[in-house]
Design a protein around this nucleic acid. Sequence first.
DNA 1: AATGAATGAGTGTTCATTCAT
DNA 2: GATGAATGAACACTCATTCAT
Lengths: 207, 207, 207, 207
Amino acid sequence: MARSPNTEARRAEITQALLTVIARHGYEKATIQSIASQAGLAPGLIHYHFKNKQEILLSLIDMLAEVARSRFTRICDAAAAPGLRLDAYLEARLGRGEGAAPDAVAAWVMISAEAVRQEEVRAVYSQVIAQELAMVTELVVAALREQQRDTRGARTLAAGVLALMEGAFGLSSATTAVMPAGYAAKAAKDFAHMAIAAAPPARHAGR
Amino acid sequence: MARSPNTEARRAEITQALLTVIARHGYEKATIQSIASQAGLAPGLIHYHFKNKQEILLSLIDMLAEVARSRFTRICDAAAAPGLRLDAYLEARLGRGEGAAPDAVAAWVMISAEAVRQEEVRAVYSQVIAQELAMVTELVVAALREQQRDTRGARTLAAGVLALMEGAFGLSSATTAVMPAGYAAKAAKDFAHMAIAAAPPARHAGR
Amino acid sequence: MARSPNTEARRAEITQALLTVIARHGYEKATIQSIASQAGLAPGLIHYHFKNKQEILLSLIDMLAEVARSRFTRICDAAAAPGLRLDAYLEARLGRGEGAAPDAVAAWVMISAEAVRQEEVRAVYSQVIAQELAMVTELVVAALREQQRDTRGARTLAAGVLALMEGAFGLSSATTAVMPAGYAAKAAKDFAHMAIAAAPPARHAGR
Amino acid sequence: MARSPNTEARRAEITQALLTVIARHGYEKATIQSIASQAGLAPGLIHYHFKNKQEILLSLIDMLAEVARSRFTRICDAAAAPGLRLDAYLEARLGRGEGAAPDAVAAWVMISAEAVRQEEVRAVYSQVIAQELAMVTELVVAALREQQRDTRGARTLAAGVLALMEGAFGLSSATTAVMPAGYAAKAAKDFAHMAIAAAPPARHAGR
DNA sequence: AATGAATGAGTGTTCATTCAT
DNA sequence: GATGAATGAACACTCATTCAT
């Protein structure tokens, strides 16, 4: 019953291949053939490791969620002061031309379009967005606490920052030569800093 | 004797039908059959009025760009004070649950995914985004002028606001029960107001 | 009931348009649309003047047969000596680069392919070939009589010459830069002259 | 473990099926369905072995060219005296009612019509005709040498003989009960013999 | 006569999925 | 595990023909 050793590796290869193909051609045009040849495998093998194409997509969403989690952990571990973590996070996601990993960004945009269409994808996608929102909220809360500010607006602020990030991803993949260089990281950081500075002071601990 | 042409009306009907279908099923799954039956027409007639499916998509993008332009004109004509126009614009686009026209919003998200895949769509999509950026920039500039602030940061600020808007559209179509209610309009307005308030004073006319 | 004046003219225009289109695209790809636009007419008008597409093809074959007849008559009237008529005929059909009217030649090749497929076309095509064979035979007989040779081999010889002509038409339309320049007229004339010279003397009239 | 490839065999089967279908219905009407059912295969399988329909046609032309080559080789090997080879060749191609293989002949006529329409087919078709011309020329040269005649007119003569052959193919497929029985083989042989006999004597070896 | 929109069957091609080897 | 052939449904698109005007 236990999966033989290379199965997990094969699944990861196939999932990674889908990321590459979906970034260029979208999900519908990401044929089993093209995924297989991107992964260097025979077409028939794909359906040995995955029940169907949809399952590869769900696996890819999982993979990207896992990447997001480890990035968050890395940033939390690295940056000493809590107030710097938010900046570090935004820089990591939006700095250097809005996406140092264009394939992953484009794949993510394609996935969000699939989430509009498909109930099942939307459910999983929503969980990843919820996770991302929780992470940004945590960073915002930490920054507010450091400034001894009220944290009740943190989630709404985080939601705005997240929307800005997602929008920047979409625009970087779907447009050419339209958006000003480096606008996204700057806008996200400015927005966060100003909102934190404008937040009311924290209530007393005794409350 | 001769039949009078009705092509323009038919093209508009078909384009509108694509909007409805693409919002629910995406571009690839928006079959000619489904577009035709949504429009109440025979399938073969679609290709009498449009060279191919792609051309309907480009027509839809045109239509949405035209809608954006007329909305902008309406807002500029209505709101007396320049400083109120930006708020009116953001409210119109993001207020009332992020999208009073969910089909148009979802269709727009699907179109941006197609823009990632297809050169030709990307070119047209980029022009519409450029138009939108120009409109937001104009509103931001007006607000800055009203406050006698320097306008040099207007375009970058507008880009951030636009990204936030586009991201909010995507998230509203692709997620369920994740984002806080009403966050988008509030975040966009807060961001704009704070940034305008933080802008340096305008330089003297004498330059 | 009598056809109104311009109907015959319209039918001729449409038939001529088919000749042009069929030469470039073949019969199957000669769409009613393309025939109509070649003739400068509305598509719906075609089926007013012809029952269906096939009827236009039959009309075209008729037209080409008529052209062949009038060419034959012209040559018979013009060349004084009977022996020169055959040469004049071969020169008219094969001289100057195997076909001074490439469209008509190509259309004829397309028609012969349709004759392979369709019983009805084959019947009409066969009649035109029979007419052509009769004309060549008549020219050969005249040449043999002039040389006082037996005419019994005339029909077989004419058939060979006709096959050579038809083959040359096909090769001139279907190949590029393969056949030697001017070979066809030379070969046909040589063949005819040698065969006539080699024919046995005519039997006595009394027989 | 792995399945052994059978693509070459399948391609040959499909190509052969096209020959049969094209002979009766022409290229346009030779639908993928009809080719598949003639070959006893599922329709989808055709496009697994061939990129598109056109590629099957090109494969068929290749096959017919290969048949022509092997026929030529066989004749050259069999007939002892060089002078007999040309007769053997013409008899093989034109004897017994102009085509012992009527399907191949009809298919060839259809292919030549496609060559008129399509650049790519014309290029390949031209090469096959060039090959055929080279073969006939070689046979004519051998016959001229045997009679110690000048060989300079060989290519032009061969072109005439080839045109006669091609014309006879077309007429045999496209007409019924028009051409005299057995005319083609007789005409081609007579033409060749008379032209060879009429050729000037060979120049001296010393040139 | 003339127009041009409308119809619907048919075509080549794609592709997820299955399966024998 | 792995291969690559096989299946069949679905798609965009074409087109002769019809018909209301």
